[in-house]
């Protein structure tokens, strides 16, 4: 029964991926930009959710890893004259290394102080990128990265992003449901008990932090490939609100929550927020409503609605 249900939901996701793959046939060019933004933000938020929803760690350094991934693509092109696509495989170890080092440092503290330490470290990276004019071109950023022939055309670039994103999402999913993922959930639920059960909490947290940072860098690299640019604002601390917002919308205790969150967030941005000069007000108000009224996110609401309909209590699921 369980296997069958899992099989069924897998089919649903395969179907969705296929629909997404057909995007260029029914979406206008500008909508492909929107769609690819959804894909990239979904990957970024899902990677953060490995920390937030699964391990219970609040990090403010995730924008820094995203930005570093984007700069990996931009800088191999700018300085080495390599194909910018070389930046993608480079972004992965780079993101891993940076996340490992800063994670090892930040994990000396716990909870709120941990969060603040990640903030300090990420601002340090931001300042370096912003100030190192000769290497990163400072606040201008790097624009107009020349992509290889086969990525010319918005549809091709979109397909490329989709393919990499799908593979990365599968990898993240495998990690989330692995015994390792289950250990992270145990840590979130109760650190002492997890330690008592023989889990080396710090080591697991550091591993989760490193993995999350790695995938964030990959998402950043995809951003640079699709948009052909990288600029320092990607690393600024306020940017962290984007994936957190997305996770909150979609629900943090579900693996697929951030994906749904990304769809809703980007469409909100495009529709409601795009219509007014005061888009911050609207996003802020939505954020407040979610925090105060439906902290479980939209998926949680959907579940409650279904549950009420069936007159049975909502099932609380911990590890997707």
């Amino acid at each position: 029964m369980k296997a069958l249900a899992a099989h069924g939901s897998r089919l649903v996701w395969i179907g969705l991926a296929l629909v997404a793959a057909l995007g260029p046939f029914f979406l206008r060019e500008i909508e492909l930009f929107t769609a690819s933004r959804i894909l990239i933000l979904a990957l970024w938020a899902t990677s953060l959710n490995l920390l937030l929803g699964q391990t219970g760690l609040v990090s403010f350094a995730h924008a820094a890893y995203f930005g570093v991934g984007a700069y990996a693509v931009a800088l191999v092109w700018e300085h080495l004259g390599w194909s910018p696509l070389m930046g993608i495989p480079l972004s992965v170890p780079l993101g891993a290394l940076l996340a490992f080092v800063s994670g090892a440092f930040a994990l000396r503290a716990v909870r709120l102080y941990f969060a603040l330490l990640t903030l300090a470290l990420s601002q340090l990276v931001y300042v370096i990128v912003f100030q190192w004019y000769s290497f990163t071109r400072g606040d201008n950023g790097i624009h107009g990265i020349d992509m290889p022939e086969f990525l010319n055309g918005t549809a091709n670039a979109y397909w490329f992003v989709l393919a990499v994103m799908v593979v990365a999402m599968i990898a993240l999913r495998v990690i989330a449901v692995s015994p390792f993922g289950a250990a992270l959930v145990a840590i979130r639920e109760n650190r002492q008990r997890a330690a008592f059960l023989g889990i080396n909490v710090k080591r697991y947290e550091l591993a989760a932090f490193t993995i999350a940072g790695t995938f964030a860098a990959l998402a950043g690299a995809l951003f640079a490939v699709f948009n052909r640019e990288a600029y320092p604002n990607l690393l600024f601390w306020t940017e962290n609100s984007v994936p957190i917002f997305i996770i909150l919308i979609g629900g943090m205790f579900r693996f697929w929550g951030p994906l749904i969150g990304a769809v809703v967030y980007v469409l909100l941005e495009e529709t409601v927020a795009g219509q007014t000069e005061y888009s911050h007000f609207i996003l802020g108000a939505i954020l407040l409503v979610i925090v105060l009224v439906i902290p479980g996110g939209i998926e949680g609401v959907g579940e409650k609605v279904v549950a009420r309909f069936r007159k049975q209590p909502a099932e609380v699921e911990v590890a997707a």
């Binding site: 609040v58 969060a115 609100s241 957190i244 917002f245 909150l248 911050h280 007000f281 996003l283 802020g284 108000a285 954020l287 407040l288 925090v291 105060l292």
Partner: peptide, 10 residues
Amino acid sequence: LLATYGVVLV
């Protein structure tokens, strides 16, 4: 934190 960030935006 998120609530106060919402207030920042508003």
